[in-house]
């Protein structure tokens, strides 16, 4: 319990650091951030008003405390361009990103795990070689290349799926596949490596010596132990999927937080940029924490001894 609490408390300085770094983002803008946001045509009165609205006329420590205070109330500020509360924008866009990420995760698990298992069982035979080459190729395909490729084949050449947008339920398939490919590659390689290691352990040899079939040995004995490290990867990658969604959503015109982030960058709407980065980072930290805690519960050997 002590170590459990220690892990929980360890998150506090990280979250504080994330808040500080995202707060400082606006201050990294070369020159006057207000001038950059409003453009050269803005009047002095407009600039003074925005500076006051964003609290940029206050000393830095006061600005940070005010920023934290507002965040504690769920107040992310307002979009400079639409004057919409950012919390509302996030609430509108976040479900689409989460839906995309979860579907991508499911696809990756559905393809990556069986592929990794087959590769390990048929070690150095053609299924293993095929799986390894596929995983390597997929891991070298960035989302902004794979996305257009899938679009070209399944939407333009075959006409099976919509090119982009969110009009129909089928619209999610191509962005989810794009987002899933990198994780599928990682899961395949991870499951293969982990299962290969477990298959050479004593308890597996004992199970085989007892005359159990290959199927029972792999599915009932080896797989359980082999999947433990995979849990960590899945957890870590779920957060990364949110970051990957920034590009994928842009390619497919999927209205999630990633696209909101890119739109805000294009419009120099820095409060929205700041809020998107913060929310994605905080979700990532939370998912990582939950992964660590889950891992500790699943594996009796891990009790936060670090």
């Amino acid at each position: 319990m002590n170590s459990f609490l220690k892990r929980l408390l360890g998150v506090i300085p990280v979250v504080f650091g994330v808040l500080l770094l995202t707060f400082l983002l606006v201050h990294l803008v070369p020159g006057d951030p207000v001038e950059v946001m409003l453009g050269e045509s803005a009047t002095t009165a407009d600039r003074t008003q925005l500076r006051a609205e964003l609290g940029l006329d206050q000393p830095l420590p006061i600005q940070f405390v005010t920023y934290l205070g507002k965040l504690a109330q769920g107040n992310f500020g307002y979009s400079i361009h639409t004057h919409t509360p950012i919390s509302r924008l996030l609430a509108e866009r976040l479900p689409a990103t989460v839906e995309l990420a979860l579907l991508a995760l499911s696809i990756a698990l559905f393809i990556g795990l069986p592929l990794g298992i087959v590769a390990a069982i048929r070690y150095r035979q053609w299924p293993d070689k095929m799986a390894t080459v596929s995983a390597l190729t997929l891991s070298a395909m960035p989302h902004f290349w794979l996305g257009p490729l899938l679009m070209l084949v399944f939407a333009l050449w075959l006409g099976w799926l919509p090119v982009n947008g969110m009009e129909s339920r089928a619209s999610i398939v191509l962005p989810a596949l794009t987002l899933a490919c990198g994780l599928t590659a990682i899961l395949t390689r991870m499951t293969r490596a982990s299962l290969l290691e477990v298959l050479s352990e004593d308890f597996v040899r004992t199970a085989r010596a007892k005359g159990l079939s290959q199927r029972v040995v792999v599915l009932r004995h080896a797989l359980k132990a082999a999947l433990l490290p995979v849990v960590t990867i899945v957890g870590l990658q779920l957060g990364s999927l949110l970051a990957g969604a920034v590009i994928t959503e842009t390619v497919f015109g999927w209205d999630g937080v990633g696209r909101l982030l890119v739109e805000s960058i294009e419009k120099r709407d820095y409060p929205v940029t700041q809020a998107c980065v913060l929310v994605i980072a905080l979700i990532y930290v939370l998912v990582n924490l939950l992964t660590d805690l889950t891992y500790a519960r699943l594996d009796p050997r891990v009790r936060f001894t670090r």
């Binding site: 990280v14 650091g17 994330v18 970051a243 990532y284």
Partner: peptide, 8 residues
């Protein structure tokens, strides 16, 4: 750790 808290 803070830098690693941002994905990708």
């Amino acid at each position: 750790e803070v830098f690693l808290a941002f994905p990708g």
